[in-house]
Nucleic acid binder design. Structure first.
Lengths: 264, 264
DNA sequence: CGATGGCTTGAGAGGCTTCAATGCCGGTGG
DNA sequence: CCACCGGCATTGAAGCCTCTCAAGCCATCG
């Protein structure tokens, strides 16, 4: 199994939490053609206005979506972690309305729109799954509006930490844990609509309250209950367990396929 | 032609600016089954967590999407005007993650998911068009993040006015014009992440600068160039003219159908 | 060892909120 | 027809949250 397919497996794993696919449909996703590319930190791999013939899947690293705005005061409107298809929407809307930048050295997989469209056309369930992925992404952005518009700096920061924890760990949360999240305080500031100075102060507060701390790209959650309550965090919007809630045919058939390819 | 279809025509008009559909596909949309419903001001017609079997199209009035948050400090994450299918995403993600509330007395059209899914299944172009509508909605929300997180109160307010002007007039903008936008200053405050007191001051400033004023739900733009430059407004994200830019087969065939039904 | 990038901390300024009071307008009931 | 009432707009004053500016620190790396 090539490394391509194991990355696609990571993507498929997320998709399968939200959509039920047959073994054949899973195979179709796993065998999508793709080209690996490495992007150094601070470089845009999608620029505003670009019309690329492919979507990008994050294999490794961290990427930010920068909304159309002035150069000064850059605002990040989404953060993308490994397994995220950052660009899936470009399949139906090719012209990029926001830039995508690697925040750390990042590996991406470029998947041709033609191939995505082909598998969507051939398997309606895949088309629906892709559509649903876009809808979930939108729900996350929508929650960012609530977060930035409706909460103060401390809660905002805590909420973002909660979201990233939940996404990195695919919902597997206990009271204390650690995870890698290589964003700088400047990145956090751009994502939260704050200054890096103030983000710093909020992080020190969260640490002092015993909730969580960040050191060199490693987040250490010391009190998940306290943190998530303080942030008013409700993970429902991340929709990481819909397939189970929709509960049509059982997930095990497709899960088998997934495991094979993850270990490959 | 029933009033149902003329409302669907308004929706179709927006869709056709972004997607190219055959005459038959337009017909399929126009003949979607639907039920009219009137919602009084301040009432939720979709509550958090609801699993409705239909999507809602705004026929008349104004609706707001309220993100999941505490009751105090309500944050609006989207505003929806006549012709908007506020709920299209619920076709693939039935459980509502945000409440929808009528801000003024509002008329909606409830369109069964079953019918939407059926037409999407039968006409792949319709599935793609629906998917694209969701993606455009997401782009708008994304721009709200940039607006709220990255601009100060004055620019924020101006930017929202620009966006609503552009959406109400479907991009047909001249230097001076008037349009109805029945949001109160409290609604604007909830949408902008400000207090109504401060929104009021910003509106008075915009008026004093000769840009625009709002009186009793009527926006009067006195200097579009000044206003949109002040707000750093770039309408590209609203994607109101993609079909023309994509420019595959000409639009005239479908446009004819549309006009017939709009006048019906 | 200097250069670089990120983190930390302080002091002062200012943008926005909070609290509070008044005015305006349309709707309603006597 | 008029008085009252409720929701919204407007304005002022005080205070806090966050920004700005600035400096110093620490780790990493060539």
């Amino acid at each position: 199994m090539t490394p391509f397919n194991s990355s696609l497996g990571h993507f498929l794993a997320k998709v399968l939490r939200r959509s039920l696919l047959s073994e054949e449909e899973c195979q179709a996703i796993l065998s999508l053609p793709a080209r690996v590319e490495h992007v150094e930190a601070r470089r845009d791999f999608v620029r505003l206005g670009d019309r690329n013939p492919h979507s990008c899947l994050i294999v490794d690293g961290l990427a930010g979506r920068f909304g159309q705005g002035q150069e000064g005061n850059r605002q990040i409107s989404a953060l993308h972690i490994p397994g995220d298809m950052v660009d899936l929407h470009s399949t139906v809307l090719p012209q990029a309305r926001s830039a995508l930048q690697a925040l750390t050295p990042t590996t991406i997989l470029k998947i041709p729109h033609a191939a995505l469209r082909e598998s969507a056309a051939r398997y309606p369930a895949i088309a629906e799954a892709f559509w649903r992925e876009c809808v979930v992404d939108a729900a996350v952005v929508s929650e960012w509006v609530v977060n930035i518009g409706g909460r103060n700096a401390g809660m905002r920061t805590a909420h973002l930490i909660c979201e990233m924890a939940y996404r990195y760990r695919l919902g597997a949360i206990c009271d204390q844990f650690v995870f890698a999240f290589p964003a700088t305080q400047l990145h956090l500031a751009d994502a939260l609509g704050l200054t890096s100075v103030h983000v710093n102060r909020m992080l020190r507060t969260l640490d002092a309250q015993g909730f969580a701390k960040i050191r060199r790209g490693i987040v250490e959650v010391m009190d998940w209950n306290g943190l998530s309550e303080f942030a008013e965090f409700d993970p429902a919007y991340l929709e990481l367990d819909i397939a189970r809630r929709i509960a049509l045919p059982p997930l095990c058939v497709t899960a088998k396929v997934l495991v094979e390819h993850d270990q490959g």
